[in-house]
């Protein structure tokens, strides 16, 4: 199947600063694909190259088999974008912005229905400057969807939003996918990537380190599993040391942390059952994309 978006070996420098060193990835039809990585990794520059707002120094990009810069006119009709930190006129009304955008395209969708869907129906007459962060982002999503595009590009969609607003936006993005659209987004929030993206590309210092499904990347790079439990059973310490796959067992009074791999959680449960060890608390800690990032780069994404 031809990918909807294909980025091959792009590089972009600003003077001596290398914003994007070497980035390649492909986005398939109908998926939510995430570019993830810390701020300054080159995600937004990559996105702006895909949007046709910047010309890469090297490499090539095709979106729906078109060139983002050469075929900008044709692509504007098929691609919807939401830019990082975009603004509108302070005193433009929500409804006016949607109307203006609708007038720019040949076949816009119904603006009122769109605002309804995005939960902005009662903000129709509100000035842009009076909207909350989440409402502004929803308006920008509305503007990105007004011409019913096949591809939607979302740059740092939920940055600066509270968790509740963030979840609402995630639902909206899933809904876009459910309508058969292809979504490319950037985020520095690993939770967002895990919950939302079908596949992700991990970007670090202008390069793609790995591409895959969030779960697949975790399996590939972070096999360690952790069990934290509390027990007063005196025999437990000795028994835990012999569990298959165990790498370390550490105690702090009655609290025990067991680290290991290869099905450790299952083996710990079997051990507890077999020896009738009484525990007062039990929880597992499975690795996530943040751990993957730490493993691959040697530093935390939050730094």
């Amino acid at each position: 199947m031809t990918p909807i978006i294909r980025v091959s070996g792009i590089r972009k420098t600003y003077g001596k600063t290398v914003a994007v060193d070497d980035v390649s990835f492909e986005v398939q039809e109908g998926e939510i694909f995430g570019l993830i990585g810390p701020n300054g990794a080159g995600k937004t520059t990559t996105m702006e190259c895909v949007e046709g707002l910047r010309r890469p120094d090297r490499g090539s990009i095709s979106v729906l088999s078109l060139d983002p810069i050469r075929d900008a006119r044709a692509l504007q009709l098929k691609v919807g974008v939401q830019l990082q930190q975009a603004q509108l006129q302070k005193r433009i009304k929500v409804r006016e912005a949607v109307d203006l955008w609708a007038s720019l395209y040949p076949h816009p969708v119904d603006g009122d229905a769109l605002l309804d869907r995005l939960g902005l129906a009662d903000k129709r007459k509100a000035w842009f400057m009076t909207l909350s962060g989440g409402q502004k982002q929803r308006l920008f999503i509305a503007l990105a969807l007004i011409h019913d595009p096949d591809v939607v590009l979302l740059d740092e969609l939920t940055t600066g939003l509270d968790p509740q607003a963030r979840r609402a936006i995630w639902d909206l993005v899933r809904e876009i996918r459910a309508r058969g659209k292809t979504v490319l987004l950037t985020t520095h929030l690993m939770e967002e990537a895990e919950r939302l993206c079908d596949r992700v590309a991990i970007v670090e210092r202008g390069r793609v380190i790995d591409v895959g499904t969030p779960a697949g990347l975790v399996r590939k790079h972070c096999e360690n599993e952790t069990v934290v439990l509390e027990t007063t059973d005196a025999s437990a310490a000795q028994r835990f040391e012999t569990i298959p796959g165990v790498e370390s067992v550490t105690w702090q009074n009655t609290a025990c942390t067991i680290r290991g791999r290869d099905g450790l959680v299952t083996h710990v449960i079997q051990c507890l059952a077999e020896h009738r060890i009484h525990v007062t608390s039990f929880k597992t800690e499975l690795p996530n994309l943040e751990d993957v990032f730490l493993t691959l780069t040697g530093h935390s994404i939050r730094e």
Binding site: L53, Q76, L77, L83, A86, Q87, L88, W101, F140
Partner: peptide, 14 residues
């Protein structure tokens, strides 16, 4: 408009 990113947003339209 340029500083506020309004122009940038308009640029991504026809």
């Amino acid at each position: 408009y340029r500083e506020g990113g309004i122009l940038k947003r308009l640029r991504a339209t026809p």
